[in-house]
Protein backbone atom coordinates (compact mmCIF):
# COMPACT_ATOMS: atom_id res chain seq x y z
CA UNK A 1 0.00 0.00 0.00
CA UNK A 2 2.62 2.45 1.15
CA UNK A 3 4.96 1.78 -1.78
CA UNK A 4 2.17 1.92 -4.34
CA UNK A 5 1.14 5.27 -2.89
CA UNK A 6 4.65 6.55 -3.18
CA UNK A 7 4.90 5.28 -6.77
CA UNK A 8 1.76 7.11 -7.70
CA UNK A 9 2.96 10.28 -6.10
CA UNK A 10 6.22 10.03 -8.06
CA UNK A 11 4.35 9.48 -11.33
CA UNK A 12 2.09 12.44 -10.63
CA UNK A 13 5.01 14.65 -9.72
CA UNK A 14 6.87 13.66 -12.87
CA UNK A 15 3.80 14.40 -14.99
CA UNK A 16 3.41 17.84 -13.44
CA UNK A 17 7.11 18.60 -13.95
CA UNK A 18 6.89 17.48 -17.57
CA UNK A 19 3.91 19.71 -18.25
CA UNK A 20 5.67 22.65 -16.64
CA UNK A 21 8.78 21.98 -18.75
CA UNK A 22 6.82 21.79 -22.00
CA UNK A 23 5.03 24.98 -21.05
CA UNK A 24 8.32 26.67 -20.31
CA UNK A 25 9.85 25.66 -23.63
CA UNK A 26 6.78 26.58 -25.66
CA UNK A 27 5.90 29.83 -24.01
CA UNK A 28 9.06 31.32 -22.64
CA UNK A 29 8.86 34.92 -23.81
CA UNK A 30 10.96 35.02 -26.94
CA UNK A 31 13.53 37.76 -26.69
CA UNK A 32 13.19 40.41 -29.38
CA UNK A 33 16.25 39.97 -31.52
CA UNK A 34 18.70 42.80 -31.79
CA UNK A 35 18.43 45.99 -29.89
CA UNK A 36 15.66 45.23 -27.37
CA UNK A 37 16.49 42.45 -24.92
CA UNK A 38 13.35 42.35 -22.84
CA UNK A 39 10.06 44.15 -22.17
CA UNK A 40 7.77 44.07 -19.19
CA UNK A 41 5.51 45.86 -16.74
CA UNK A 42 6.83 47.24 -13.53
CA UNK A 43 4.49 48.45 -10.85
CA UNK A 44 1.07 49.77 -11.78
CA UNK A 45 2.06 52.54 -14.14
CA UNK A 46 5.42 51.60 -15.66
CA UNK A 47 6.64 49.75 -18.73
CA UNK A 48 10.32 48.82 -18.89
CA UNK A 49 12.39 48.15 -21.99
CA UNK A 50 15.81 46.55 -21.63
CA UNK A 51 18.23 47.47 -24.42
CA UNK A 52 21.71 46.37 -25.38
CA UNK A 53 23.20 49.85 -25.45
CA UNK A 54 22.29 53.25 -24.04
CA UNK A 55 19.95 55.50 -26.01
CA UNK A 56 20.93 59.06 -26.78
CA UNK A 57 19.51 61.47 -24.21
CA UNK A 58 17.83 63.75 -26.75
CA UNK A 59 15.60 60.86 -27.89
CA UNK A 60 14.24 60.21 -24.40
CA UNK A 61 11.21 62.46 -24.66
CA UNK A 62 7.60 61.33 -24.14
CA UNK A 63 6.54 62.14 -27.74
CA UNK A 64 8.90 59.49 -29.08
CA UNK A 65 7.02 56.72 -27.28
CA UNK A 66 3.41 55.67 -27.85
CA UNK A 67 1.65 52.84 -26.05
CA UNK A 68 -1.78 51.30 -26.43
CA UNK A 69 -3.63 48.18 -25.37
CA UNK A 70 -3.68 45.60 -28.14
CA UNK A 71 -7.50 45.54 -28.16
CA UNK A 72 -7.84 49.32 -28.12
CA UNK A 73 -5.39 50.59 -30.73
CA UNK A 74 -7.26 53.89 -30.99
CA UNK A 75 -6.55 54.88 -27.38
CA UNK A 76 -2.96 56.02 -27.59
CA UNK A 77 -1.02 57.02 -24.51
CA UNK A 78 2.24 58.84 -24.15
CA UNK A 79 4.36 58.37 -21.05
CA UNK A 80 4.71 61.33 -18.73
CA UNK A 81 8.29 60.47 -17.90
CA UNK A 82 11.04 58.53 -19.67
CA UNK A 83 14.07 57.48 -17.68
CA UNK A 84 17.21 55.54 -18.50
CA UNK A 85 19.23 53.58 -16.01
CA UNK A 86 22.24 51.29 -16.24
CA UNK A 87 21.89 48.30 -13.98
CA UNK A 88 24.02 45.17 -13.99
CA UNK A 89 25.48 45.77 -17.43
CA UNK A 90 22.02 46.24 -18.91
CA UNK A 91 20.43 49.45 -19.99
CA UNK A 92 16.84 49.85 -18.79
CA UNK A 93 14.39 52.44 -20.15
CA UNK A 94 11.39 52.99 -17.95
CA UNK A 95 8.26 54.70 -19.26
CA UNK A 96 5.94 56.08 -16.58
CA UNK A 97 2.29 56.71 -17.46
CA UNK A 98 -0.14 58.93 -15.62
CA UNK A 99 -2.84 56.26 -15.28
CA UNK A 100 -2.53 52.68 -14.05
CA UNK A 101 -2.08 50.18 -16.89
CA UNK A 102 -4.34 47.18 -17.25
CA UNK A 103 -1.63 44.58 -17.04
CA UNK A 104 -3.98 41.73 -17.92
CA UNK A 105 -4.07 43.04 -21.51
CA UNK A 106 -1.00 42.97 -23.75
CA UNK A 107 0.24 46.44 -24.65
CA UNK A 108 1.99 47.61 -27.80
CA UNK A 109 4.76 50.19 -27.49
CA UNK A 110 5.86 52.10 -30.59
CA UNK A 111 9.04 54.12 -30.67
CA UNK A 112 10.98 56.23 -33.13
CA UNK A 113 14.37 54.76 -34.23
CA UNK A 114 16.36 54.72 -31.00
CA UNK A 115 19.80 54.19 -32.58
CA UNK A 116 21.24 55.29 -35.88
CA UNK A 117 21.05 51.83 -37.44
CA UNK A 118 17.80 50.44 -35.99
CA UNK A 119 14.32 50.93 -37.47
CA UNK A 120 11.28 52.34 -35.64
CA UNK A 121 10.17 49.71 -33.17
CA UNK A 122 6.81 48.15 -32.38
CA UNK A 123 7.07 46.06 -29.22
CA UNK A 124 4.59 43.80 -27.55
CA UNK A 125 4.59 44.04 -23.77
CA UNK A 126 2.81 41.38 -21.78
CA UNK A 127 3.03 39.46 -18.59
CA UNK A 128 5.04 36.33 -19.11
CA UNK A 129 2.79 33.47 -20.12
CA UNK A 130 4.46 31.09 -17.72
CA UNK A 131 3.75 33.52 -14.90
CA UNK A 132 0.14 33.69 -16.01
CA UNK A 133 -0.16 29.90 -15.98
CA UNK A 134 1.58 29.67 -12.63
CA UNK A 135 -0.85 32.25 -11.30
CA UNK A 136 -3.84 30.15 -12.41
CA UNK A 137 -2.30 27.14 -10.65
CA UNK A 138 -1.48 28.93 -7.40
CA UNK A 139 -4.78 30.75 -7.47
CA UNK A 140 -6.80 27.52 -7.69
CA UNK A 141 -4.49 25.84 -5.15
CA UNK A 142 -4.37 28.48 -2.41
CA UNK A 143 -6.04 31.83 -3.09
CA UNK A 144 -9.28 30.37 -4.40
CA UNK A 145 -8.93 26.96 -2.80
CA UNK A 146 -12.10 25.14 -3.84
CA UNK A 147 -12.73 23.62 -0.42
CA UNK A 148 -11.88 26.48 1.92
CA UNK A 149 -12.85 29.55 -0.09
CA UNK A 150 -15.46 28.28 -2.57
CA UNK A 151 -17.05 25.69 -0.26
CA UNK A 152 -17.28 22.95 -2.87
CA UNK A 153 -16.75 19.23 -2.54
CA UNK A 154 -17.57 19.30 1.16
CA UNK A 155 -19.50 16.02 1.38
CA UNK A 156 -16.58 13.99 0.11
CA UNK A 157 -14.18 16.23 2.01
CA UNK A 158 -15.75 15.49 5.39
CA UNK A 159 -16.39 11.87 4.47
CA UNK A 160 -12.81 10.95 3.60
CA UNK A 161 -10.73 13.15 5.88
CA UNK A 162 -10.83 10.95 8.98
CA UNK A 163 -7.54 9.17 8.26
CA UNK A 164 -4.46 10.38 6.44
CA UNK A 165 -4.30 7.20 4.38
CA UNK A 166 -7.81 7.52 2.99
CA UNK A 167 -7.32 11.25 2.53
CA UNK A 168 -4.24 10.91 0.33
CA UNK A 169 -5.83 8.03 -1.57
CA UNK A 170 -8.91 10.06 -2.33
CA UNK A 171 -6.85 13.10 -3.25
CA UNK A 172 -4.68 11.22 -5.73
CA UNK A 173 -7.55 9.40 -7.42
CA UNK A 174 -9.40 12.69 -7.62
CA UNK A 175 -6.43 14.42 -9.24
CA UNK A 176 -6.22 11.79 -11.98
CA UNK A 177 -9.92 11.86 -12.80
CA UNK A 178 -10.01 15.65 -12.58
CA UNK A 179 -7.22 16.03 -15.13
CA UNK A 180 -8.73 13.52 -17.52
CA UNK A 181 -12.23 14.94 -17.37
CA UNK A 182 -11.10 18.57 -17.57
CA UNK A 183 -9.10 17.88 -20.72
CA UNK A 184 -12.00 16.01 -22.32
CA UNK A 185 -14.41 18.73 -21.28
CA UNK A 186 -12.21 21.35 -22.88
CA UNK A 187 -12.22 19.51 -26.21
CA UNK A 188 -15.97 18.94 -26.03
CA UNK A 189 -16.61 22.58 -25.16
CA UNK A 190 -14.24 24.04 -27.74
CA UNK A 191 -15.04 21.76 -30.67
CA UNK A 192 -18.67 20.72 -30.10
CA UNK A 193 -20.59 23.03 -27.78
CA UNK A 194 -19.34 26.37 -29.11
CA UNK A 195 -19.45 25.67 -32.88
CA UNK A 196 -22.98 24.24 -32.67
CA UNK A 197 -24.33 26.83 -30.21
CA UNK A 198 -25.15 24.15 -27.65
CA UNK A 199 -23.95 26.15 -24.69
CA UNK A 200 -27.01 25.26 -22.66
CA UNK A 201 -26.02 21.58 -22.68
CA UNK A 202 -22.89 22.29 -20.58
CA UNK A 203 -24.12 20.51 -17.47
CA UNK A 204 -25.17 17.32 -19.23
CA UNK A 205 -22.05 17.07 -21.38
CA UNK A 206 -19.62 17.78 -18.54
CA UNK A 207 -21.21 15.37 -16.09
CA UNK A 208 -21.33 12.75 -18.83
CA UNK A 209 -17.62 13.17 -19.47
CA UNK A 210 -16.91 12.89 -15.75
CA UNK A 211 -18.74 9.56 -15.57
CA UNK A 212 -16.90 8.46 -18.67
CA UNK A 213 -13.48 9.26 -17.19
CA UNK A 214 -14.40 7.59 -13.90
CA UNK A 215 -15.37 4.49 -15.86
CA UNK A 216 -12.19 4.66 -17.94
CA UNK A 217 -9.89 5.04 -14.94
CA UNK A 218 -11.76 2.20 -13.25
CA UNK A 219 -11.30 -0.17 -16.20
CA UNK A 220 -7.68 0.77 -16.87
CA UNK A 221 -6.63 0.53 -13.23
CA UNK A 222 -8.39 -2.81 -12.84
CA UNK A 223 -6.46 -4.29 -15.78
CA UNK A 224 -3.09 -2.58 -15.34
CA UNK A 225 -2.59 -2.64 -11.61
CA UNK A 226 -5.06 -4.77 -9.62
CA UNK A 227 -3.18 -4.09 -6.36
CA UNK A 228 -3.56 -0.37 -6.77
CA UNK A 229 -7.17 -0.82 -7.79
CA UNK A 230 -7.87 -2.73 -4.60
CA UNK A 231 -6.72 0.17 -2.47
CA UNK A 232 -8.10 3.03 -4.57
CA UNK A 233 -11.13 1.55 -6.29
CA UNK A 234 -13.52 2.53 -3.52
CA UNK A 235 -12.80 6.21 -4.01
CA UNK A 236 -13.70 6.19 -7.68
CA UNK A 237 -17.45 6.16 -7.05
CA UNK A 238 -17.07 9.09 -4.66
CA UNK A 239 -15.40 11.27 -7.29
CA UNK A 240 -18.63 11.84 -9.15
CA UNK A 241 -20.38 13.13 -6.01
CA UNK A 242 -17.76 15.87 -5.66
CA UNK A 243 -18.95 19.26 -6.88
CA UNK A 244 -15.40 20.38 -7.73
CA UNK A 245 -15.20 17.96 -10.61
CA UNK A 246 -18.11 19.69 -12.34
CA UNK A 247 -17.28 23.20 -11.12
CA UNK A 248 -13.88 23.20 -12.85
CA UNK A 249 -15.22 22.65 -16.40
CA UNK A 250 -17.97 25.22 -15.78
CA UNK A 251 -15.38 27.73 -14.59
CA UNK A 252 -13.19 26.90 -17.59
CA UNK A 253 -16.13 27.53 -19.93
CA UNK A 254 -17.11 30.85 -18.38
CA UNK A 255 -13.51 32.09 -18.52
CA UNK A 256 -12.82 30.82 -22.07
CA UNK A 257 -9.58 29.15 -21.00
CA UNK A 258 -7.28 27.47 -23.51
CA UNK A 259 -6.07 23.90 -23.07
CA UNK A 260 -2.94 24.73 -21.10
CA UNK A 261 -4.82 27.06 -18.78
CA UNK A 262 -7.45 24.36 -18.28
CA UNK A 263 -4.79 21.82 -17.33
CA UNK A 264 -3.32 24.27 -14.82
CA UNK A 265 -6.75 25.01 -13.37
CA UNK A 266 -7.52 21.31 -13.03
CA UNK A 267 -4.13 20.61 -11.42
CA UNK A 268 -4.59 23.52 -9.04
CA UNK A 269 -8.14 22.58 -8.09
CA UNK A 270 -7.29 18.93 -7.54
CA UNK A 271 -4.06 19.77 -5.76
CA UNK A 272 -5.96 22.18 -3.54
CA UNK A 273 -8.42 19.43 -2.70
CA UNK A 274 -5.57 17.05 -1.89
CA UNK A 275 -3.93 19.71 0.28
CA UNK A 276 -7.17 20.42 2.12
CA UNK A 277 -7.78 16.72 2.71
CA UNK A 278 -4.28 16.19 3.99
CA UNK A 279 -4.39 19.16 6.36
CA UNK A 280 -7.81 18.21 7.64
CA UNK A 281 -6.99 14.54 8.18
CA UNK A 282 -3.85 15.46 10.11
CA UNK A 283 -5.96 17.53 12.48
CA UNK A 284 -8.76 14.99 12.77
CA UNK A 285 -6.37 12.18 13.67
CA UNK A 286 -5.27 14.27 16.62
CA UNK A 287 -8.81 15.35 17.48
CA UNK A 288 -9.66 11.70 18.15
CA UNK A 289 -7.43 11.85 21.21
CA UNK A 290 -8.64 15.23 22.44
CA UNK A 291 -11.33 15.61 25.11
CA UNK A 292 -14.23 17.05 23.14
CA UNK A 293 -17.73 17.72 24.54
CA UNK A 294 -19.99 14.82 23.68
CA UNK A 295 -22.31 16.76 21.39
CA UNK A 296 -19.40 18.18 19.36
CA UNK A 297 -17.88 14.80 18.54
CA UNK A 298 -17.65 13.80 14.90
CA UNK A 299 -18.92 16.22 12.27
CA UNK A 300 -19.58 19.35 14.37
CA UNK A 301 -15.98 19.71 15.50
CA UNK A 302 -14.81 18.87 11.96
CA UNK A 303 -16.88 21.76 10.63
CA UNK A 304 -15.46 24.15 13.16
CA UNK A 305 -11.93 23.03 12.31
CA UNK A 306 -12.69 23.55 8.64
CA UNK A 307 -13.97 27.03 9.50
CA UNK A 308 -10.66 27.83 11.12
CA UNK A 309 -8.81 26.61 8.05
CA UNK A 310 -11.08 28.77 5.92
CA UNK A 311 -10.23 31.79 8.05
CA UNK A 312 -6.54 31.02 7.64
CA UNK A 313 -6.92 30.62 3.88
CA UNK A 314 -8.59 34.03 3.76
CA UNK A 315 -5.10 35.32 4.43
CA UNK A 316 -3.96 34.13 1.00
CA UNK A 317 -6.41 36.43 -0.74
CA UNK A 318 -4.70 39.47 -2.11
CA UNK A 319 -1.58 37.42 -2.74
CA UNK A 320 -0.03 38.70 -5.95
CA UNK A 321 2.63 36.79 -7.79
CA UNK A 322 3.37 39.17 -10.58
Amino acid sequence: MKSSLRNLAIILGAAAALIALVAAVLFWPASNDGFILDTGFSGDTKITLTTTSPVEKSLLVPQNFTAFEENDPDIQMHPVKVKQKLSGGKNVLSLTFDAPLNRANPHIVKTVPLTSDSPALSLRVEQSYLGHLLFILISALLINNYVFTKYLGLCVFFGTSKRKKTATGMGIVFTIVMLASAIMSWFAYRYVLIPFHLDFLQVVVFIGLVSLSVQAVDTILRKVNPVLFKSFGVFLVLVIANCIIIAVPLYMASNQYNLLETVMLALGAAGGFLLALYLMSSVRERLDLAPIPESFKGLPIAFITAGQFALAFLGFSGLQLI
Partner: peptide
Protein backbone atom coordinates in the same frame (compact mmCIF):
# COMPACT_ATOMS: atom_id res chain seq x y z
CA UNK B 1 -12.26 53.03 -9.27
CA UNK B 2 -9.48 52.16 -11.71
CA UNK B 3 -11.86 50.23 -13.96
CA UNK B 4 -14.27 53.17 -14.08
CA UNK B 5 -11.43 55.61 -14.71
CA UNK B 6 -10.09 53.60 -17.64
CA UNK B 7 -13.60 53.16 -19.09
CA UNK B 8 -14.36 56.87 -18.92
CA UNK B 9 -10.96 57.92 -20.25
CA UNK B 10 -11.28 55.66 -23.28
CA UNK B 11 -14.85 56.72 -23.95
CA UNK B 12 -14.14 60.44 -23.73
CA UNK B 13 -11.20 60.11 -26.12
CA UNK B 14 -13.38 58.27 -28.64
CA UNK B 15 -16.37 60.55 -28.29
CA UNK B 16 -14.25 63.64 -28.84
CA UNK B 17 -12.75 62.12 -31.99
Amino acid sequence: LQGNQAMIRKFVTRMEI
